[in-house]
Simulated scan of single mutants.
Amino acid sequence: MGWSSANEIFNPVARALQTAGADDDTKRKVLGDLIAGLQQGDWDTEDESLEDFLDDPAIVAAFADHGVHTNDGRCCRQNLSAEAQRRITEALAEQFADGHHERGMRVNFQAPDGYPASRNVQPDEAAQVAIDAIRDLLTSTATAQQPTGTTDPR
Rank of each mutant, 00 (worst) to 15 (best):
144 A>V: 01
42 D>M: 14
2 G>L: 11
9 I>V: 14
141 T>A: 09
96 F>G: 05
152 D>L: 11
82 A>M: 14
35 I>T: 07
47 D>Y: 11
115 Y>A: 14
24 D>Y: 01
18 Q>M: 10
123 P>H: 05
41 G>I: 06
31 L>Y: 06
58 A>Q: 10
44 D>K: 09
30 V>A: 10
35 I>Y: 00
32 G>W: 04
8 E>H: 09
52 D>C: 10
73 G>L: 09
58 A>I: 06
114 G>E: 04
103 R>T: 04
71 N>F: 06
46 E>V: 00
137 L>N: 11
23 D>T: 06
45 T>V: 00
13 V>Y: 00
128 Q>V: 07
87 R>N: 14
119 R>L: 08
48 E>N: 07
55 D>P: 13
101 H>A: 15
62 A>V: 08
39 Q>W: 08
131 I>T: 15
68 V>Q: 13
130 A>P: 02
39 Q>I: 12
65 D>S: 14
70 T>A: 05
143 T>R: 11
53 F>S: 06
138 L>C: 13
97 A>E: 08
128 Q>E: 12
59 I>A: 04
23 D>Q: 08
82 A>I: 13
90 E>G: 04
26 T>Y: 00
100 H>Y: 00
53 F>V: 09
33 D>F: 12
50 L>C: 06
72 D>Q: 09
80 L>E: 14
64 A>S: 13
4 S>Y: 07
47 D>I: 02
